[in-house]
Design a protein around this nucleic acid. Structure first.
Lengths: 187, 187
DNA sequence: GTCTATATTCCGATAGAC
DNA sequence: GTCTATCGGAATATAGAC
């Protein structure tokens, strides 16, 4: 696959996470790369096309991470740790996550993008739910509410944690991150 | 104050909560009102001007709510309930909140808007922190982490709860809302 | 296959009509 | 004071050059 195409995908994702889907243009990408904005249209005919590709890349990245963790024999606690570490990295880089960013703009997206976003979030919540449930059965986690409720609550905390940290202070994300672990760690 | 101006403020806020700050235009407002887009510029010379007014209106609305609750002698539990009810209403109307919406677009906002947003969120977190702390001292709430940590965690859950609910399913917000109360209700 | 010149539409904003 | 006609520029996208 072309290196230019890869670079466009990378820049596009970064722009969605920093300026929002409706807050960046092909110009933003092309000027950084030293080409004309229309050159970007060669690789991604429409902005929706680019957005969709970024979404699919992310969904795939998630699947690879899960697969990789299972190949390495990570237990549920280690898997949760790896998942939250992705968010810690985003916070360090002043980025929010794809879910929070596209969640804001969802009503301006086309159906294919909306569907892909739903699919990805649904998959992440299901994985979180299963990981929490299995981990609790093994005594790695402690909580009393239904696993899906806990999964949604943790994901929500992480997603908006990044947004709040960008508005207020980076260290506020650490507090939110810590509170999650305080809630599920066995006493 | 002019009724046209009021209507513009109302529509502008709704658009920020449904399509995002960079996802709506003066056209969206003017067509609904049956006027030309330039007429909106008479009341709000620039989009930043409109955004700032919407932010200040919201901050003021929050202060009025707090004042009103204290005048009525609401205890901390009742105050928290009233606060979360605002989010339940937003969820019913398929809207996210101003914090989540502008949090996504923060890097595309002007300094005055960013400052106003920070001020508002800071105020809400401080109020939440104090309410949680006082309520805990009275035995109305039960939690072990620092009040500010809990305040950030609850706000994050509410903010992204709306975003997740819009992506997945309205009922998912109810699960998140319930999990908050399960966490702070004394056993 | 890769990119540029160019078209089209829409956005935010100004000057001026009533 | 209230609104419209209109502008300059930016955004997305196409046709065609190399």
């Amino acid at each position: 696959m072309s290196v230019t195409r890869e670079k466009i995908l990378e820049l596009g994702e970064e722009l969605i996470l920093t300026k929002g889907y409706n807050g960046f243009s092909y110009q933003d990408i092309s000027t950084v790369m030293g080409i004309k904005n229309a050159a970007v249209h060669y690789y991604f005919p429409s902005k929706e096309n680019l957005g969709l590709s970024i979404l699919k890349t992310n969904a795939q990245r998630f699947e690879e991470m899960v697969e990789n963790m299972q190949n390495r024999g990570f237990n549920e606690w280690q898997q949760m740790e790896a998942f939250t570490k992705v968010y810690i990295k985003s916070n360090r880089e002043n980025k929010i996550c794809l879910i929070g960013s596209l969640g804001t703009d969802i009503n301006t997206l086309t159906d294919p993008m909306r569907t892909e976003l739903q699919k990805m979030v649904d998959r992440i919540v299901s994985w979180l739910e299963l990981t929490l449930q299995n981990g609790r059965e093994k005594g790695l986690f402690h909580f009393s509410m239904p696993p899906r409720e806990m999964a949604l609550r943790i994901l929500a905390s992480l997603v908006a944690g990044l947004q709040l940290a960008r508005i207020l202070n980076k260290t506020d994300f650490k507090a939110i991150h810590q509170s999650i672990w305080e809630e599920i760690t066995p006493k």
